[in-house]
Design a binder for these strands. Structure first.
Lengths: 400, 400
DNA sequence: TTGAAAGCGCTAACAT
DNA sequence: ATGTTAGCGCTTTCAA
């Protein structure tokens, strides 16, 4: 094995050294180390190139070659403020001047400088996103999509930063955000949980997929895990199952707690008994260091003389492991055993055979709503407090 | 079915309406719509609170309550510039004054205003990340992690934006970046491909996971797919397989092209025949609208009288489908059939039973290197052009 | 409808 | 080692 690895390393190194050129022969891209000239050409700022002659000498070589509002003003022969008015769509500009200014903006390639604007207005037009690991976690990237879609319609930009779980990183990030005079912050977590802040945020903040442990009333948007759990259980019951197993998440996280409660309530609502030996955790270990053990747990449960006919699961990964467990015991899904997932993590739920019936976490909507609420707060809406729960629709596929 | 859905909707609505309070009884978070007072308290800017009496009347109520460099200067009794020097770690400040200023900065809670700094220096301290869908695609989020890690060590921030494939979105993003006077841009794609720019970027740009079709010499960092493909084929050969199948990606994408070439070359290097009927695409449809069909393709191949003993695959999703295909035919992996993945998308590769031997795409490293090179360019290093390929290490697990 | 003046917070370029 | 002056690009305020 060690020998093999050594060999591979050598092979790899050899290929690395030469594969670039090979790659290029395939792709017809020339591999040349760009010389200074072409690099410079490549990066030269294009605006300012027109810079025509109507202005006095003073306007000559501005740093960074950036066209300023003054350049435009001089070009048209109006005041700075008039250009500013046009750029910001303010009233009180005659149609004629407006057209003239707009033409000049286009030909000169003027782009407003948000930094300068910030200095005057104290509004940066940027919203910050802090995530524990959300931006690097497949399940929840939809949150970011939702946020981005909403934020960009409000002509704001998104500055994102990752704590990667490190508290000192979080401090640094808040600091950076203050430096950039971020207008507002969205604080998102990878999974639904409670968070604690070292100090209460000094910037308007909306929590995404989490709630604040110490700050009741802090605006936050979370999935309705209770409802999702209830709907999943109902599905199993409605399909006629009475022997219902449940391979859960780490029972300590909020989502598991709420869904577990929902499971019990749903079962009770139909007078079906909850069998403790059929409710088992699919993960080992504490929060943040979970180890998947659903395969073994499921096999164990399914090999008993009296076994469940359907398995509810904590998430789609657990469901997938149950699927493999069923296969390994020669059971057919859903005929011999039904399986219901959670999350609708499509890379798994839609691609597994058979595809999973699963409860979808409304991550995209959560992102949109959270951004919505933050924007409302920034616009001065003062009533936007409290926890908001979004429903988790069930997605029916073949597994149960 | 329609009835069921209707029922579920009603149930869901009912639960949504009431589950919030239920959720709270579990989580001990009060659900109160925060009143104006507490909201204001929550969001009041904390800095500026100390604002002690040594300054003249003029310093009274500044907008946004932000402490400026002038406040600090007045507090200590030095000039603005001296504070500026301390804040920027410039030389020529006596240890004594420096200590004094630092103390004042701390007590007043001064945070530099990057916008104002930008106006003078024309450097925003922000790097922009444009991605087609990378930030929302599981496989490649590691690219972002790498970029962030590298960028944050350089005390730069990251502004990210998603084109979601829409070309007009891309235009808007470049515009936004210009407005914020972004220092440099990282342009990342979800999968290794060639990109075309409407107009050549006006900001220093490094391509990530892609190469420019029209701009040779544009700096870019990509995985060495050829080498990865070669290593995968070698693994199969070294395990003694001679009947080697290959369920590929959409053959039109660069990665598939390069790996296919590598496969052929590797087979040739050992004098093993490539069987065309065993090389088949696991996806249907054009670029961007691929439909997974690996399950059917694999079953087809495996049911033939003469069948491969190992399946190389285009990615781990394809590998997973091959796994299901094998199971469905009662084959054991890896005994009856070995499977080798690609990408090392851990959510699948590590959690499937048996876990996948697979070739890892070095996304994290790609991110780091790309950021590296951009920072070098920004620092004035003019030699940083051309395509850079990073090796793809093989990860040995149980499947082959 | 338009413009002039002032100044936001900061730093470059000089004094001292 | 420290301060002064000026001005970055923009908007606010007020006057015309």
């Amino acid at each position: 094995m060690a020998i093999l690895c050594g060999l591979l390393t050598i092979v790899r190194a050899r290929w690395l050294a030469t594969s670039i050129s090979r790659q290029l022969s395939t792709s017809s891209i020339l591999f040349v180390d760009v010389d200074n000239l072409s690099l410079n050409r490549l990066y030269v700022v294009q605006s300012g190139r027109v810079r025509s002659g109507s202005d006095p000498a003073e306007t000559a070589e501005r740093k960074g070659d950036m066209v300023s509002i003054r350049d435009v003003a001089a070009h048209v022969g109006v005041s700075d403020k008039t250009v500013s008015r046009v750029a910001n769509n303010e009233p009180n500009v005659s149609a004629r001047t407006k057209a003239l200014v707009e033409a000049a903006i286009a030909t000169l390639g003027y782009v407003p400088n948000m930094g300068a604007r910030l200095v005057r207005t104290n509004r940066s037009g940027v919203i910050g996103l802090i995530s524990d690991v959300v931006s690097t976690t497949p399940n929840s990237v939809d949150i970011i999509r939702g946020i981005q879609d909403r934020v960009s319609t409000a002509k704001q930009s998104l500055l994102i930063a990752n704590t990667a779980g490190a508290p000192d990183a979080e401090q640094r990030i808040w600091r950076t955000f203050q430096e950039h005079r971020i207008d507002g912050v969205l604080f998102a977590t990878m999974y639904h949980r409670r968070v604690t802040f070292a100090s209460r945020p000094t910037i308007p903040t909306v929590l995404v997929n989490c709630t604040a442990a110490d700050e009741p009333g802090m605006p936050s948007v979370v999935p309705d895990d209770y409802e999702g759990g209830y709907v999943a259980a109902l599905r199993a019951l409605d399909q006629g199952h009475r022997k219902i197993g449940f391979v859960t998440l780490n029972p300590k996280i909020i989502a598991a707690e709420l869904r577990g409660k929902a499971f019990i309530d749903a079962m009770a609502s139909r007078g079906v008994e909850v069998r403790p030996e059929w409710v088992r955790a699919g993960y080992l270990g504490g929060i943040g260091e979970e180890q998947l053990c659903a395969y073994d747990v499921a096999r164990d449960m399914l090999q008993a003389a009296d076994r469940p006919t359907v398995l509810l699961t904590g998430n789609d990964q657990v469901a997938m492991q149950c699927l493999f467990a069923a296969h390994s015991l020669g059971m057919r899904v859903p005929d011999d055993l039904a399986i219901i997932g959670f999350d609708d993590f499509q890379m798994i739920s839609a691609q597994v055979i058979p595809p999973l019936t699963t409860v979808a976490l409304p991550y995209y909507d959560i992102g949109v709503r959270a951004a919505d609420r933050l924007l409302a707060i920034l616009a001065g809406d003062v009533s936007e407090g409290g926890v908001e729960c979004l429903p988790c629709p069930i997605v029916i596929r073949a597994s149960g």
